[in-house]
């Protein structure tokens, strides 16, 4: 089961947000949502610093995933610092390849090549949301809450 997709720029501000099966859902434009996004941005940012400083192998380490009792967060960061995070239920397998696809195919096509979009600003292009929605809904783990 897939819950939420977040995209952050390299200074940790939210560029994009979309959710699917969440029972507890913040309202669009509400204070709660803004808070959630800034918390998530800050978390990913701090985790990166944290991983870097405690990693036993020196540099070149990055956070790919963490889990709680209720959900799992998959994370992918592009070398230019755009962070993609997706939350799912605990049974969903690793989604890094999918996040990579969202970056290399959808993000590049609909955001980077959009002449109206300046790097790092929130994504307003509806084509991107549509493409992401379509792609995520087609994933085998989109709505099943068990191993497929």
């Amino acid at each position: 089961m897939i819950y939420t997709l977040y995209i952050f720029n390299r200074s940790g501000s939210s560029m994009f947000f979309h959710d699917w099966h969440r029972r507890k859902r913040p309202v669009e434009g509400s204070k709660e949502l803004a808070e959630e996004l800034s918390l998530m941005g800050g978390l990913l940012y701090s985790l990166k610093q944290f991983v870097r400083s405690v990693s036993p192998q020196g540099d070149g380490d990055s956070m790919t995933c963490f889990r709680t009792n209720k959900f799992r967060l998959h994370h992918f960061e592009s070398p230019a610092g755009i962070r993609f995070a997706i939350t799912t239920d605990l049974l969903c397998p690793d989604l890094r390849t999918e996040l990579r696809y969202i970056y290399s195919a959808l993000f590049v096509e609909h955001v980077v090549r959009d002449p109206m979009h300046t790097a790092g600003s929130p994504i307003t292009n509806p084509a991107f949301r549509e493409a992401v929605d379509k792609f995520v809904q087609k994933l085998p783990h989109f709505s099943t809450s068990g191993a497929v």
Partner: peptide, 18 residues
């Protein structure tokens, strides 16, 4: 350049330069 870099990184699937 600011835009091209993402296309470049996505197409080549390269890791970061250290």
């Amino acid at each position: 350049g600011m835009k091209i870099v993402d296309e470049f990184l996505a197409t080549t699937a390269m890791g970061s330069c250290r």
